[in-house]
């Protein structure tokens, strides 16, 4: 079963229709824990993007030799390998970026979104399609994290990207982990509402 979507459709699909955070509701732990600022969301998004693309391509390349009963261990192994390799390469050649991102890269091993995309998509599709799906999912995750980060940073710290916008700190509550749940829930409702309005407008 090959996908009939074009590359662009695959990317857009990851960002909108199947957004990992708001539509698939996967990888909630990082979404709630890390999305305290826009920059944190962006960094984690970049890290996920790379690991997702590399893992998707690897699995799609080896899909015919993976025994169906040990799919999940193989996926985990692949993700862990890529995370470790990316972590080491970053530390060696991009120490500046590593100083800011290192903490996020190590978190990725246990992300549900990556395993799920490997299971649902990469193990059935061509390398090319998996690559674009990986890009779409990574960007979708980054978009979700940054949107959450924006709301939480603005309401919690009064800043955007570290710049003071409001001049005061409205509610520190938003930076704490449990506020992540409220934000995810409210934004999910918002995106669902937008979708309903869009569909209604389309029908009319």
């Amino acid at each position: 079963m090959a996908t009939d979507k074009t590359n662009l459709q695959l990317v857009v699909n990851g960002i909108l229709n199947e957004n990992p955070i708001f539509r698939l509701v996967l990888s909630m732990c990082p979404a709630v824990g890390i999305s305290t600022t826009v920059m944190n969301g962006f960094m984690l998004g970049i890290a996920v993007l790379f690991v997702q693309v590399f893992s998707s391509c690897t699995i799609s390349l080896f899909k015919n030799v993976i025994h169906p009963r040990i799919r999940i261990p193989t996926y985990t192994l692949t993700i862990a390998t890529w995370v470790t390799v990316i972590d080491m390469v970053l530390a060696a050649y991009l120490p500046e970026a590593y100083a800011r991102m290192g903490i996020f890269v190590k978190l990725i091993v246990a992300f549900a979104i990556i395993t799920m995309r490997l299971e649902m998509f990469a193990c059935k599709e061509s390398v090319n399609a998996s690559f674009w799906d990986g890009i779409g999912m990574g960007l979708g995750f980054m978009f979700g994290m940054m949107a959450l980060g924006f709301v939480r940073e603005l309401l919690g710290l009064g800043t955007v990207l570290g710049y003071d916008v409001l001049g005061f700190k409205p509610l520190l509550f938003f930076v704490l982990p449990f506020a992540g749940f409220f934000c995810v829930g409210l934004m999910m409702a918002f995106f669902n509402y937008v979708e309903i309005v869009y569909k209604r407008a389309k029908r009319a």
Binding site: V85, M88, Y93
Partner: peptide, 16 residues
């Protein structure tokens, strides 16, 4: 996987 990680480690350890 071990080979890939080991190779990456050898290649990057000195620089790190």
């Amino acid at each position: 996987a071990g080979l890939v990680m080991g190779a990456a480690f050898i290649a990057t350890n000195k620089a790190k």
